[in-house]
Every structure is written in C-alpha cells, then in structure tokens.
C-alpha cells in the first residue's frame, strides 16, 4: 500500500484552477519528487497535502504502515495533519522560531507528545513523574537530531543567528522531531551551495533509511534526478507525467513543457539529461 495516495485532487481559487484533477501515489520508503515549471501548482498541491489548504475536490489518504487503516488527510483540521496524519513539512522560505534557540525549536516540535505527559499542566508545573521522563526522552531525540544535522555546537544559539544552510537543516530536524511517516520538503536545496547541497542529500538519504518516506518539490534538476525514486510532473495544474527519473528524462511531453517555459529551466532539463 502506498504511503500517500492523491485521488483526483482539485484546488480552485475563485475562477482559477491551480490544481486540476491530480492523482498520484507516493510509495513507502521512496523519495518522490514533484516538479514542473513555475506556476504549475506544485506548492498549492503541497499545501493541500500538508493541510494549509483544503482541496476543493478529491481525496488524500495516508497509511502509516502496510496494514494500517488509511487516514483521510483532507478531512483533518490543519494542525492535526502533523499530529494525527504524521505528515511533517518544511517551507520554501525557512520558517523557524528565530528568537528561540536551536534546541528550543526542536522541543517545540515535540509539543504534543510532551503536552500529553503534563497532566493538564499540573504535573509539568510541579515537575513530577511522567513529565520528567517524557522531557528526558524529548531531549534525547532533540540531541540525536542535533548530531545528525551537525548543529550540536550551536544548540544554545538563537535559530535566527544561524547561517542559511544551517537554518534549512534545522528546519528539517525540527520537522523530523514530530515523528512523521512522510516528510514534505518545499525546495530544500534552494539557495544552498554545492557542498551544502551534497550534505542535504546525505541527510535525506539517512532520513529515508530510518524509515520515513519523502515528498519534495525541487527546481534543481541535478538534485531531483540524483535522489528521487519517482517523479511527478505538473504543468498548468495538471499531471503530465509520472515515473522514474529515466522515464521522465525521455518523456517528450515533459521536455515540451519545459522548453515552452523558459530557457533556464530547459537548460536544467538538458543538463539533467
């Protein structure tokens, strides 16, 4: 059973159809990429999956493990997508809690788990029993991600003071602290230098190896072709292709869509070939 199934997802804003009847599925344990020229509806589709928009039509289902009862994401309220749906996301323009430390960012991400252990705040305020234990575990998880992202040394610095590449890594670490089964990344490589980009690759591979599936929007064809197992191509809100990198590379419809767009993107497609 695929981890995520989109069935006839449509998103309309007034007269504008941003996502038009898109169906695809993301396989468990895979890295699935959504690509497409500017304005193809990638981010809108993403926002539907992560609960920031409620799709006008269609269904989105997630199944946490092979024989789990599938869960309708499009029925969940926004904040429950991460909590119950176990879908985490990052943002195109990094959204960190800039005035809180790196460590605090990672603890905020474990809010629901910790909040459940506070016994309506009373155990927490008094610092008793179950909460103590939960807090220690949360710290351990945070530390593990600090190590994984190479941010351990900067744990006590405000997130806003980190360099851009580190902020991107922290955002991924923060999303992972919610214990997701599906991590959605909105252009994770944007603005990274080649070395940081390689580091990102490694981090994403580790996340996948640990059992979390990935869904990403990416402009950088080099990154996409190298790491994804499956690629979904959108153009003008419609799905025009779906397949392995090799299939997509040779798909004439995809090439036409990119050539029709801009030189830069066409070059990227060329380079990927």
């Amino acid at each position: 059973m695929p981890i995520l199934t989109a069935h006839n997802v449509t998103m309309r804003f007034g007269g504008l159809v941003a996502v038009d009847n898109v169906s695809f599925s993301a396989r468990r344990g895979d890295i699935t990429a959504i690509i497409g020229p500017n304005g193809a509806g990638k981010t809108t589709l993403f926002n539907c999956i992560t609960g920031f928009y409620r799709p006008t039509g269609g269904t989105l289902t997630i199944s946490h493990h092979e024989d789990a009862h599938p869960l309708r994401l499009d029925k969940l309220p926004g904040h429950a997508i991460a909590h119950k749906g176990r879908v985490a996301r990052t943002f195109q323009n990094v959204r960190l809690f800039a005035g809180m430390t790196v460590l605090e960012n990672l603890l905020v991400a474990q809010h629901n788990k910790l909040q459940d252990a506070t016994g309506f705040g009373v155990l927490g305020i008094l610092g008793l029993g179950r909460y103590r234990h939960a807090e220690r575990e949360a710290m351990e998880q945070a530390k593990a991600w600090l190590h994984a992202t190479g941010l351990y040394e900067r744990a006590d610095d405000p997130a806003g003071s980190l360099p851009y590449g580190a902020q991107r890594r922290l955002e991924i670490a923060r999303a992972m602290c919610t214990d997701p089964v599906l991590l959605c990344l909105d252009e994770p490589a944007a603005g990274l230098n080649p070395r940081e980009s390689a580091g990102l690759n490694e981090l994403l591979q580790k996340i996948r190896k640990d059992g979390c599936s990935l869904l990403l929007i990416e402009h950088d064809m080099g990154v996409v072709m190298k790491i994804s197992d499956q690629i979904v191509v959108l153009d003008h809100g419609k799905k025009i292709a779906d397949g392995t990198p090799a299939e997509i590379r040779s798909d004439p419809v995809v090439i036409a869509a990119y050539l029709g767009e801009s030189e830069e993107d066409a070059d990227a497609a060329e380079a990927a070939r």
Binding site: T50, H79, F97, G127
Partner: peptide, 29 residues
C-alpha cells in the same frame, strides 16, 4: 516561569515567533 519551561509556555513563544510554523508542527493554535 514554570510554564515557560513547559510545552505550553514554549508553544506560546513559538506562536509569537511564527504561527504558521506552529500549525505545521501539529500545535493546536
């Protein structure tokens, strides 16, 4: 002061910093 060190207090401060990020982390705003 105690609440500030609790999930609830941290969620308040996170809300002040970025409400959208809070929602993406499953915090009931």
């Amino acid at each position: 002061l105690r609440l500030r060190k609790q999930p609830l207090g941290r969620a308040w401060e996170a809300l002040r910093e970025d409400e959208i990020a809070c929602r993406s982390l499953g915090i009931n705003v």
